[in-house]
Amino acid sequence: MQYLLMLYANETGWSNLTKAQQEQGMAAYTAYTEALKKAGVWKGSNRLQPINSATTVRVADGKSQVLDGPYIETKEQIGGYYLIDVPDLDSAISWAARCPSASHGVVEVRPVWAMQASSAAPAS
């Protein structure tokens, strides 16, 4: 089963770290990614640019509305994700606990909605 691990953390926490601490932090993520790949469960991952780069788009009554900033302003913001393929939720949780974000922020574990290949595309 595929799970999306959403990494939430306080962005200012990162910018307050010293350069050496940041390097150590990055190295921990690299090692974590490697461990996922070695275990054959890694499907994809990305780090996101800070929230001041976010833009929110909504179309209502045929009019598009574009706003500067994230959808919800919270202290902790999503800063990246991992997509993993593991047998069950327990296994997803144990990988989430190893993610460096779990120690300085929060990791939300969400199962991916499995779709049949035929029904995945909207009917045209």
Binding site: Q24, A27, A28, T30, A31, Y32, L36, A97, S103, H104
Partner: peptide
């Protein structure tokens, strides 16, 4: 060490291994 760091869940032990 790289693999050990990637598998560790305790940040203090992670730092130690690094």
């Amino acid at each position: 060490y790289e693999i050990a760091v990637g598998l560790e869940r305790d940040p203090a032990v992670r730092r130690f291994l690094q």
